[in-house]
C-alpha cells in the first residue's frame, strides 16, 4: 500500500482524528489527535491487513527554545511531540505515529499534559510510558501503574524537558 493510499484509508476510517501526515520525511509519519489515539492504535493492531503487532518505542520531543534570541527566530510554537514507532511482523513494515501535546495542561506550568495510555494495546507501552512520564513529564490516562521508573520516586521535575533545571541538592548530595 502506498503512503498516500494508507493515509486516505485512515482518514476515511477516523476522519478528524487523523490531523496530518508527512510522507516526504526520512521516516514518513502520520499525526493523530490525542482523543483518537487509542482508537487508531487498536485499529492498526487488529486490522487483519495491517497487523501492527509490535510497539518499538515511545519518544517525547520537547520543542522549546530556552534562549530568548533563538526563541524569537524559531519556526515552531512550544509544544511536545509524542512519537510512536510501530512494526508489523506479518507485513514487515514500520509506521510512525505522532501526537502533538501542549507543554503544560491548560498552559498552567507544572500541570502535566495528558494523553490516553496504549498499555492496553501493547504491553511494551507499560514501561515505555512510565519512562516517558518520568523523564519527559506526560501523564498517561488509564496506565495501570504510572510511577517513575529510572529516577528515584521522590525526584522532582522531568529531566528531558528543555527548561529543566538540575536540583542544587538531593538528600545531601550536591547537584551542581
Amino acid at each position: 500500500m502506498s503512503g498516500q493510499a494508507f493515509v486516505d484509508r485512515l482518514k476515511k476510517q477516523f476522519g478528524d482524528h487523523i490531523t496530518g501526515a508527512n510522507l516526504e520525511a526520512i521516516d514518513p509519519w502520520i499525526e493523530v489527535a490525542p482523543e483518537g489515539l487509542v482508537e487508531v492504535c487498536r485499529y492498526l493492531r487488529d486490522d487483519p491487513e495491517l497487523r501492527f503487532d509490535m510497539l518499538n518505542c515511545i519518544t517525547v520531543v520537547d520543542y522549546l527554545e530556552t534562549d530568548p534570541k533563538k526563541a524569537a527566530k524559531a519556526d515552531f510554537a512550544p509544544h511536545l511531540e509524542l512519537v510512536y514507532h510501530l512494526w508489523s511482523f506479518p507485513n514487515k513494515v514500520s509506521l510512525v505515529l505522532k501526537v502533538m501535546l501542549p507543554r503544560w495542561k491548560n498552559d498552567v506550568p507544572g500541570e502535566l499534559p495528558e494523553v490516553d495510555s496504549v498499555a492496553g494495546i501493547w504491553s511494551t507501552a507499560d514501561w515505555h510510558e512510565r519512562e516517558t512520564y518520568d523523564l519527559s513529564g506526560v501523564r498517561f490516562i488509564g496506565h495501570p501503574s504510572l510511577r517513575r521508573i529510572l529516577c528515584p520516586e521522590d525526584w522532582e521535575g522531568h529531566p528531558l524537558r528543555k527548561d529543566y533545571e538540575m536540583p542544587l541538592e538531593y538528600h545531601g548530595i550536591r547537584g551542581r
Partner: peptide
C-alpha cells in the same frame, strides 16, 4: 528526524 534499529546481541537496539 530518523529512527533506526539494528540487531545488537541482546535484541533490537533502536536510536532516534
Amino acid at each position: 528526524e530518523a529512527y533506526l534499529e539494528t540487531e545488537a546481541p541482546r535484541g533490537q537496539m533502536g536510536f532516534f
